[in-house]
């Protein structure tokens, strides 16, 4: 990377995991799906978390951001950049925020008055894409602190999918794997180098039409249509080379990385990806595949998994972590970070 004046680091991160757990059998039991499809056997999912009716994308993002700022112990006025990277920006009443950026509303709720605010759209890779941009701005000296947020209020996709005849609309079945949640990262200057590194960013646009999110037809809120097996194959066909190039680009030794988190489309697809990764580069130390009770939470997914790891005491200060991101498009991007100091005290 050129023109680096400063170093950067993840100062803190936080995720809000809604308390309400909805078991898979309540919305996608074997009798509900075409051909007695067993979604648990197919995906490894047990269910998802559902936000409260009053919690839209904005409220979810603010909850994570407040927790993140509390962990960092910094004043909101020190923040120079706020980026929102939620995919749908869906309110509790299923209205979708369009303009100006939802990041502006997040900043207003947090009392941030002088930050640049914008929204990023890069599907499930939006979070890492936003952090990459913020990281560059910090390293060039343009800004000191950046807050990256996302609130994914997406479980209305499940109701939309179920309103269709899934025999005829099988591309809606992937909508049954989503969950609600939110995430926030605070990125700031660092005295030490190499606290954050990124892979080369890739978009393999030949796969761009395999997952489409847009307004639902004849009902409020969004819909999603996914050619899931083709999209997964697109990832698997490129994954080994992507990881090999990423290790080289970031100057990392694969076997020394202490924790690895991949975008959890489903626990079973992560296992498949894990096998491809290990065949290409060797065994991973700690591959975190704990999305069985939260589902696919889009751009928030890595942070949701890391929050679970904090709660279970699996992550320690100074440990190295690789986040691997895939987003429809098809975007592929990885980020290597050092866990912030004091993480053991985060509640």
């Amino acid at each position: 990377m050129s023109a680096e004046t400063y170093h950067s680091r993840v100062v803190s991160f936080a995720s809000y995991i809604p308390e309400q757990f909805v078991p898979l059998g309540d919305y996608a039991g074997i009798g509900d799906l075409p051909g007695k499809l067993d979604l648990h056997r197919l995906t490894g999912l047990d269910g998802h978390r559902k936000s409260k009716p009053e919690e839209g994308s904005l409220e979810l993002a603010v909850k994570a951001a407040e927790k993140c700022l509390e962990r960092a112990n910094i004043n909101a006025q020190q923040i120079d950049l706020v980026v929102n990277c939620a995919m749908g920006k869906i309110a509790g009443n299923l209205e979708m925020h369009l303009s100006p950026s939802l990041a502006t509303l997040v900043a207003r709720r947090l009392g941030i008055e002088n930050a640049t605010c914008f929204d990023m759209s890069n599907a499930c890779s939006g979070m890492l894409t936003s952090i990459m941009l913020a990281d560059t701005m910090i390293k060039s000296g343009e800004i000191e602190y950046a807050l990256i947020v996302s609130g994914e209020n997406v479980t209305s996709l499940i109701d939309e999918a179920k309103s269709n005849n899934l025999w005829l609309r099988s591309q809606a079945i992937a909508s049954l794997t989503v969950g609600d949640g939110s995430a926030a990262y605070l990125i700031g200057r660092s005295d030490k180098p190499n606290q954050i590194a990124f892979s080369e960013p890739f978009t393999l646009a030949q796969y761009t039409n395999l997952c489409i999110g847009e307004a639902a037809k004849k009902r409020a809120g969004p819909s999603m249509r996914t050619k899931a097996s083709q999209l997964q194959q697109g990832v698997l066909d490129n994954l080994g080379v992507f990881l090999g190039r990423s290790m080289k680009h970031m100057g990392l030794d694969w076997e020394k990385i202490e924790h690895t988190y991949s975008h959890p489309t489903s626990p079973k697809s992560m296992r498949k990806g894990g096998r491809v990764a290990e065949a290409a580069l060797g065994q991973m130390k700690n591959f975190h595949n704990e999305s069985h009770d939260i589902g696919n939470t889009g751009s928030t997914s890595h942070c949701m998994l890391m929050e679970k790891s904090i709660q279970s005491g699996d992550l320690k200060s100074g440990e190295t972590t690789l986040l691997i991101s895939f987003g429809s498009g098809l975007a592929m991007l990885a980020m290597h970070i050092t866990m912030p100091e004091g993480i053991e005290e985060w509640s």
């Binding site: 749908g88 393999l204 847009e214 190039r245």
Partner: peptide, 24 residues
Amino acid sequence: FRVEPAFATHVQDALGLKCTLMTQ
């Protein structure tokens, strides 16, 4: 009201810009 994928990925696809399998 499409939100996913990014519009720019559709432009890249329409231009046929580097839409190939990844190699080293």
